[in-house]
Nucleic acid binder design. Structure first.
Length: 387
DNA sequence: TCTGATGATTAGCT
DNA sequence: AGCTAATCATCAGA
């Protein structure tokens, strides 16, 4: 605390006292603007002005500083001498005048300095969290009361499970928020009562108490933010879990697979549907365009792989047939294996060579005939994709 | 429970 | 951006 404002305040108040009670006394000419009043100002005034007879008046700056230090360190609680001072102060005829003056000065000086706009502004983090909680139906209307849509079975099951989990989170949130509000109210009420008591001996106006309660609530809102953050994290985890397609993979319906297979085999020469076609297929199959893209990606690569596998098997069996003409069966098997491994005899590849394909028997490969021969192209140019 | 099928994801390529 | 190839995670039938 700076000394100059305190001295100015003392002089100012002394002048006020002289005017109010007309009893004369020291009148000081210092009426300069008072700035930066501290919380102990009231005690200082009590010591030096209201009860000057029980305290010696400091004559030097060092004496005054020493006295101020003493006052600052003295507790206002459970102290007989302090209580005596409080009582003397409350009974003093000038108490009200002094009180009003100090409240007025505090409002003009200290409060105006501390009353920054950000103290009253809404916390952006809290607003963001509240917004998310509103969007996710944790606050506001309960989504579990909404009528269920009659979508496909899997989606409906997922939705029900999601709503159930969300309802649990919602319940947890409201329970914790109720507890928070209760604790918050209890604490702010305690602060309010404390300030009311302090207000009897210190210049604390009603609006200051309100402001202090607001500050308390603001400080306590950190717990509220923490709570809301935890709830938001829970929702994000829930959504991640529910939306993780790998965990909740569902096979497409038979009808959807049929539609996709029909298109694939009908366009086996160039199984790359355009974006428009993908959208149409997605609509027909009731899946997303991405799923259509995935399906075609998987289909193409697996189709190719199966061809390679069929080719390998064809090589093996062809080689074995050829080897059967040998007398040594061991030699035959070795020859077949070597032929298959080397990918020899491409003539037997039903897809690498369309002419051979048309003459071969796909069933000997052991592959799924519907996989390989459904919608088999008749025009040789259709094979360009696999050549 | 095992195993092949299948949808989704990812890195790398063009 | 779209594709391939490898891989993962899950489904579903034996």
């Amino acid at each position: 605390m700076s000394m100059l404002p305190i001295m100015q305040m003392i002089y100012r108040w002394e002048a006020q006292v002289v005017r109010d009670d007309g009893s004369g006394g020291r009148i000081c000419g210092h009426r300069e603007r008072v700035e930066g009043l501290g919380e102990k100002l009231w005690d200082i005034l009590v010591y030096y002005i209201i009860m000057p007879e029980v305290h010696y008046t400091p004559t030097t700056m060092d004496d005054l500083l020493q006295q101020l230090q003493y006052i600052s360190e003295e507790s206002l609680e459970d102290n007989n001498s302090v209580n005596a001072k409080k009582n003397a102060l409350l009974a003093h005829p000038l108490k009200q005048a002094l009180y009003s003056e100090l409240v007025n000065i505090k409002r003009k000086t200290a409060l105006s300095i501390r009353n920054q706009p950000d103290e009253n502004g809404e916390n952006p983090d809290l607003a963001r969290l509240d917004n998310m909680l509103l969007v996710e139906h944790v606050i506001g209307p309960d989504p579990s009361h909404y009528p269920q849509s009659s979508t496909a079975g899997n989606a409906s099951t997922d939705n029900t499970e999601y709503l159930q989990k969300l309802s649990e989170i919602r319940q947890d949130y409201h329970q914790k928020m109720t507890g928070y509000e209760m604790e918050c109210s209890k604490f702010t009420e305690h602060v309010r009562k404390l300030l009311d008591v302090q207000g009897q001996v210190r210049p604390i106006a009603g609006h200051e108490i309100q402001r202090m309660v607001g500050i308390c609530r603001k400080r306590l809102s950190r717990f509220q933010i923490q709570l809301k953050q935890n709830i938001c994290e829970k929702i994000i985890n829930l959504k991640t879990r529910m939306c993780d397609a790998r965990r909740k993979r569902r096979n497409f319906s038979k009808q959807a697979t049929q539609i996709l297979n029909d298109y694939f085999h009908a366009h086996i020469g160039n199984p790359y549907p355009s974006e428009e076609v993908k959208e149409e297929l997605a609509r027909q199959c009731q899946i997303t365009v991405s799923q259509v893209s995935n399906w075609f990606g998987n289909k193409r690569i697996r189709y190719k792989k199966n061809i390679a596998k069929a080719q390998e098997e064809a090589h093996f069996y062809a080689a074995r047939r050829q080897a059967e003409t040998f007398s040594d069966s061991q030699q035959a098997l070795s020859a077949a294996a070597a032929a298959a491994a080397a990918g020899a005899m491409p003539m037997l590849n039903p897809y690498a060579n369309p002419v051979a394909n048309l003459g071969g028997n796909p069933l000997t490969s052991g592959a799924d005939p519907t996989q390989f021969y459904s919608g088999l192209p008749t025009d040789l140019s259709d094979f360009k994709y696999f050549l």
